[in-house]
Design a protein around this nucleic acid. Structure first.
Length: 391
DNA sequence: TCTGGGGTCCTAGGACCC
DNA sequence: TCTGGGGTCCTAGGACCC
């Protein structure tokens, strides 16, 4: 028996949130993003899309295409609140829900739909109720796998509902252009097209006829890709929280720069931000990566893995400055970023430390553990205060 | 004024150990 | 002194997604 996997996507989510805050924006061309240097469109309204505005576009281009466009700054705290409302709403329907990002989730409806005669009216009602309760719009995909459910929710927007069963692969999935397939990006799509593969159906055909070429193209992703397009890929919604693998912060400089002091100041605040987040998540990290973009927009990374995990801003900054001095002193930079990875949980750090004779632990490490504990308690207090204020 | 910022996963080469 | 194969870790880069 195949499962019933549902993918729910909140349509033009950021824009919709802004419309909820300010209903006069409804039916207007709206773009979310910032207007400064290097500003790009994060999301835009369906009205703006009619002018050719789309996400990822430089803001000045959006303004050129649509001079009346209304630009709103990203308001993450509010979007997170609405996202949480959405999650709790879905949770009332099925306990098996996992948010895949701020505006989409995967759910398992296998048990829930057992006795439902008419899933179409069931989900139409779901959409209506979601709108009544949260004022959010959504598209829904229902299928036996996560991949097909995702393709389903993308099939008709906004407010769409699409079922893709195995017997619908030919009629629904296969006509879809290859560039719209989840997992095929702007590098792979042209390469596939050059091979005469223009739709997912073409890809399926090629998988049947010429497995050798497909293995060569997809490498380790071959099995999964094949499973996706023939309808037997992953259908497990795991409720276990995945631990973050890295914590990073980057910023485009006010202007391209090779000025050591200016870059040092920027790196300092990036290191502070990374350190703060690492402390909030109770994670130490062993690897520091310095990310830069040069004035030609090429990305470069340099990383260093330490024997001792670190969390303090000055430690992170030390490594980042060292990497900078070694490799990028003479480069004019457009963007700089710092990422902390090879993360180790705070509680595992304590275990690691206790493996040593405690007297041998350096005084500064003891201090750090105490600082961390204080941060943890402070954070709890802040959250408590915040929830009290809300009430 | 050309092109953000947050991530994950994969590849490939080199160092090093057994 | 020469030979080789497996495994792990580190580093740099790149594709992709939201």
């Amino acid at each position: 028996m195949s499962k019933i996997i549902v993918h729910i996507d909140l349509n033009a989510f950021f824009v919709r949130c802004e419309e909820i805050k300010n209903p006069s924006l409804i039916n207007k061309p709206v773009a979310i993003g910032h207007e400064g240097r290097a500003g790009i469109v994060s999301t835009c309204s369906y009205t703006a899309r009619k002018y050719g505005v789309h996400s990822g576009q430089p803001m000045f281009q959006a303004k050129r295409l649509c001079p009346n466009i209304i630009i709103k700054e990203v308001d993450f705290p509010f979007y997170k609140t609405k996202s949480k409302e959405f999650y709790l709403f879905v949770k009332k329907y099925t306990s098996i829900v996992v948010m895949a990002s701020i505006d989409e989730c995967y759910c398992d409806f296998t048990d829930v739909l057992k006795d439902v005669k008419d899933p179409i009216s069931y989900f139409k009602n779901f959409q209506k109720e979601l709108f009544d309760k949260t004022k959010l719009h959504c598209s829904i995909g229902l299928a036996p796998t996560k991949f097909l459910a995702k393709m389903g929710s993308d099939y008709k927007k906004p407010d769409g509902f699409t079922i893709i069963r195995i017997r619908d692969l030919e009629s629904i999935l296969y006509p879809i252009p290859i560039e719209n397939m989840y997992g095929i990006g702007k590098k792979s799509a042209p390469r596939l097209k050059a091979m005469g593969i223009n739709t997912i159906g073409d890809l399926a055909k090629r998988f049947k006829e010429d497995e050798i070429t497909m293995k060569d193209f997809f490498g380790v992703g071959f099995d999964n890709c094949k499973a996706c397009i023939f309808g037997y890929s992953d259908d497990v919604i795991s409720l276990e929280e995945e631990d973050a693998k890295s914590i990073g912060n980057s910023t485009t400089l006010y202007r391209d720069s090779d000025d050591y002091e200016e870059i040092k100041e920027t790196l300092k605040s990036l290191a502070e931000e990374v350190s703060l987040r690492a402390k909030n998540e109770m994670k130490y990290g062993k690897t520091v990566t310095l990310v830069v973009k040069d004035s030609e927009f090429n990305s470069h990374t340099k990383s260093k893995t330490l024997s001792t995990p670190i969390i303090e801003a000055y430690d992170i900054l030390d490594v980042a400055l060292d990497l900078y001095a070694k490799s990028y002193q003479n480069l004019t930079l457009r963007l700089v970023g710092i990422t902390l990875s090879s993360l180790i949980d705070f509680k595992d750090m304590v275990v690691q430390l206790s493996l040593f004779d405690y007297d041998q632990v350096e005084e500064k490490d003891k201090t750090r553990l105490i600082i961390n504990e204080i941060n943890k308690r402070l954070k709890k207090q802040v959250l408590k205060r915040a929830s009290e204020v809300k009430k």
